[in-house]
């Protein structure tokens, strides 16, 4: 899962640093991800992992790091 997330961040996150070098708990917004880029990351995650984020998860903290994204996807996959 982590590899796919890193690829999505590379394609859509518009980060100022190399996504392969990001720590799982690095703050993606600090790394340059804008609000608009985070929307594109969210939509790409939905497509790749075949999930739909409910409204309660459409917020900044859910997409703030690789580990936060992993937690959210795991939660949606188990439900």
């Amino acid at each position: 899962m982590e590899g796919k997330i890193r690829q999505i961040l590379k394609d859509h996150g518009r980060l100022s640093i190399d996504t392969t070098k990001l720590a799982v708990d690095s703050d993606l917004y600090q790394a340059g991800m804008t609000s608009h880029a985070s929307v594109n990351v969210m939509l790409a995650l939905e497509g790749v992992f075949d999930i739909e984020f409910p409204d309660r998860m459409l917020k900044r903290s859910v997409f703030e790091s690789i580990s936060a994204i992993q937690t959210a996807i795991s939660e949606l996959k188990t439900n």
Binding site: S35, V39, M42, L58, K59, S61
Partner: peptide, 14 residues
């Protein structure tokens, strides 16, 4: 749209 709901939530949160 849905992406917009996330932008709006970000705007409020910040």
């Amino acid at each position: 749209g849905r992406g917009g709901r996330m932008l709006a939530a970000n705007q409020r949160e910040q």
